[in-house]
């Protein structure tokens, strides 16, 4: 749970962008959109996990049930 997560998300973003560009150039646009959706889902899964951890921490500290 440190700054490395930010770099991982940025790396995923860049890789997805590159792959999409390549697929677009070789006119496989449908696969390109698919790849970008998959990338987005992976990143959102990580972020949702982090949100869950944050809310659990806050709940335990502030006594919010």
């Amino acid at each position: 749970m440190d700054i490395s997560i930010l770099f991982k998300i940025a790396a995923i973003g860049i890789i997805i962008t590159v792959i999409c560009q390549i697929l677009k150039k070789s006119d496989r646009d449908d696969i390109a959109t698919l790849v970008s959706i998959v990338g987005l889902v992976i990143v959102l899964a990580v972020v949702v996990g982090m949100i869950g951890d944050l809310f659990n921490d806050i709940k335990s500290i502030f006594g919010l049930i």
């Binding site: 998300i9 995923i12 962008t17 970008s36 990338g39 990580v46 951890d53």
Partner: peptide, 26 residues
């Protein structure tokens, strides 16, 4: 990172911002 990703993938820049805010809040 958010500005970097905003150009190509705006939705990913949303995810990076949320992740950064969460790290700070922790």
């Amino acid at each position: 990172t958010a500005v970097l990703l905003k150009g190509t993938k705006p939705e990913l820049s949303f995810a990076v911002t949320v992740a950064g805010i969460i790290v700070i809040l922790l």
